[in-house]
């Protein structure tokens, strides 16, 4: 499946993540944290795909296990004794806090997985390239050079291994050989960069002012995404300011409220975080509709 954020202007996408990620980091309310985690998982699935989400989930599981275990065993802030284990009081609040922290951390990992899939270096640069064209070009070149240098280093390593591996015994010789490899890499990279500079100059680089090509266009779709997202974000902020996202863990954990206003706060937050899924659904629905009209 195609990343649904590909259909939007990078600015829209970046704004959305600027709304969502900070909220996910600060909201420790169990319901908010759970909502954020679930939505992040869904968003990561529809944008980054199964493979990357799976890898992120693995990371989440390991981190969660550590955090939950650590909090359950060592967190002494609570007041409710859950059970005793080899003379140590294990507190329910500590466990609960660990669980929510794990959810928050997991959701942040997943949101970032989603972010890297939706805003790649090209899009990021595109956003700032209009303001700083030369800096943007420099960063773009750095990205491509980094890849090239990695591949060169690997090739040099191969070749030098083939040539000198049998003679390079002993620490001193191995260090000398490593030094040779680095010098070979520098030589090669510098030599190539001269040709890169030639290629740039031959295409008119540094002959005066530059313009910037536009690859993305702000469309109606972006407005339909940005306005409701912003409204929901503002509403969430209002709820948060009014204390609907507060939750005390110590000494006794609060009970989770479901009053109408509280539920509305949950709903607004849920809606905001479901936007990646909505975008994905919107794409497949418009596609189906466009097919069925034929």
């Amino acid at each position: 499946m195609k990343n649904p954020f590909d259909f939007y202007h990078p600015a829209t996408v970046l704004c959305y993540f600027l709304f969502v990620i900070p909220l996910s980091i600060v909201l420790f309310h169990p319901v908010f944290a759970s909502v954020s985690f679930l939505c992040a998982a869904v968003a990561s699935l529809v944008t980054a795909g199964l493979k990357k989400t799976g890898a992120a989930m693995k990371l989440c599981l390991i981190l969660s296990a550590v955090i939950i275990l650590f909090n359950t065993v060592f967190n002494d802030n609570g007041a409710t004794v859950w059970f005793r284990f080899s003379g140590r009081q294990i507190l329910l609040e500590g466990f609960l806090y660990g669980l929510c922290s794990a959810l928050v951390l997991g959701s942040v990992v997943l949101w970032f997985t989603c972010y890297t899939a939706a805003v790649d270096s090209d899009r990021f640069l595109y956003l700032f390239g209009g303001i700083f064209p030369n800096a943007a070009l420099l960063i773009s070149m750095t990205f491509s050079q980094t890849r090239i240098i990695y591949s060169k280093a690997a090739q040099i390593d191969d070749a030098q291994k083939g040539l000198y591996a049998q003679t390079a015994k002993g620490l001193r010789k191995r260090i000398l050989l490593a030094g040779r490899k680095i010098s070979a890499l520098l030589d090669w990279a510098l030599e190539d960069s001269i040709e890169t500079a030639d290629s740039m100059h031959s295409r008119g680089y540094a002959t005066g002012k530059r313009t910037k090509m536009k690859f993305y266009f702000f469309s109606r779709r972006d407005i339909a995404f940005a306005i409701p997202a912003f409204a929901l974000f503002a509403l969430s902020l209002v709820f948060i300011a009014r204390g609907y996202a507060d939750f005390n863990y110590y000494p006794f954990a609060d009970t989770i409220g479901f009053s109408p206003v509280q539920s509305a706060a949950y709903a607004v937050y849920l809606l905001l975080l479901m936007f990646p899924l909505f975008a994905a659904i919107r794409e497949s629905v418009t596609w189906r509709l466009s097919r069925s009209e034929i």
Partner: peptide, 30 residues
């Protein structure tokens, strides 16, 4: 001018930026 080594002649990270590079340099209107 096109030189021998394709790797060192590419300047940008993405193909479309590479295509735009020369045009941007000579200040072609959008």
């Amino acid at each position: 001018i096109i030189l021998q080594n394709p790797d060192s002649q590419t300047v940008c990270d993405s193909v479309r930026s590479e295509l735009a590079f020369g045009l941007e340099s000579i200040e072609t209107p959008l």
